[in-house]
Design a protein around this nucleic acid. Sequence first.
DNA 1: TGAATATGAATGAATATTCATTCATTGAAG
DNA 2: CTTCAATGAATGAATATTCATTCATATTCA
Lengths: 212, 212
Amino acid sequence: MRAKKVAVIASAPSPRREAASRRLIEATLDCIATLGLRETTVPDIAARAGMAVGSISQYFAGKEALYTAALDAMAREFAERVADRVAAAGPSPARRLCAYVDAYFDVRTGQRRKVAVWFAFWAEVQAQPQYQAVCAGHDRAHDALVESLVSDLVGPAHSAAQARLLTSCCYGLWLELLTAHPRPSREALHALAYQQLAALFPAHAGEFAQTE
Amino acid sequence: MRAKKVAVIASAPSPRREAASRRLIEATLDCIATLGLRETTVPDIAARAGMAVGSISQYFAGKEALYTAALDAMAREFAERVADRVAAAGPSPARRLCAYVDAYFDVRTGQRRKVAVWFAFWAEVQAQPQYQAVCAGHDRAHDALVESLVSDLVGPAHSAAQARLLTSCCYGLWLELLTAHPRPSREALHALAYQQLAALFPAHAGEFAQTE
DNA sequence: TGAATATGAATGAATATTCATTCATTGAAG
DNA sequence: CTTCAATGAATGAATATTCATTCATATTCA
């Protein structure tokens, strides 16, 4: 009996529900990107999702739950993009590192709209423990990956510091996307990230050819 | 009549008023750092400043005006710190660049509390034009300074890209202060920033001795 | 005493959440 | 094949809450 009930609850939601949840999350990300966390209202999200305000409660416990789900979805997408690109890069450590950087300036994950959302959440990470919880899990895996990529290229001696300088630089370049005047293109920042690779790993500078 | 009134308004505020404004701005920065822009309320700010909520309207036109003043004050302080340190560094281009980096991890401007506020505003820069206006002015001066510092060291050929990589890295390291686990110390990040200097300008690596 | 400043309860606008009702889709019965 | 009931989803007006702002009164200063 109990087992059966649990099974029912755990069963996959209907495609319709799934689609509606997704649509709400996308609408939330859009609103946060354009209005910010502070100015985004529930009616805004509903309007952009093409739903009534009341419908949201069918899918999420409240605005905060929706925010958290949106953050999680975005973090998941980014992690996936990184993993996919690195996996597709083959065995060369240099190419794998390139693939990692590429993910930051990918047309999907590196677009202004997404980056704005990252920064919106980071700004509140201090104050909102639930955001911190979502980020912490993803960060742990991310940091481990970067360090292994760097370590594969130059050995473990200074890999921790170099890994940190690489990711910090990528995040800093992301910030340029939001604040710089005139607005830099994704491509320009991507090229700068490759310069950072060359600066950090001069012995492999020739291997960091930008392929896209 | 009208002229007189304008003159009175434009005259220097009394020391008392000055102190109260300052106290309010400090309280605002504190609240933003711990609660975020979204959760900070006017009663929060008043309480932390040791004032009544109604008193705020004596000094600022509203919450947003207070926020903007706080952002401006912080940006001013940072610019001042950079200018002071660079001026104190003497004529050596390498030491001047070190001084620039030092300002980012200064015990005052590079503290967690301040960095959290920077990110809080950056997250909203897209949505709030008034924040953009405040930042734009300071950014212009900042970017020009960095590029001149870099140019003095290595010439103008690639100075723009290298300057951007340096500042991006500093901002990225600031972000670590907010999101990394375990929380890195200011000193650790400062040391990493020096490694970035050495990586970007290998010909001068020996000159980037950390003095503090 | 008069002017300037401080106070904080009262106000009302903004907004998240709730819920009784409506609507569409699916599946069963005739 | 048609009709009818059952389920799940969508709706948005109504409600409750939060919070910035105001202002009549009290206090301090010169």
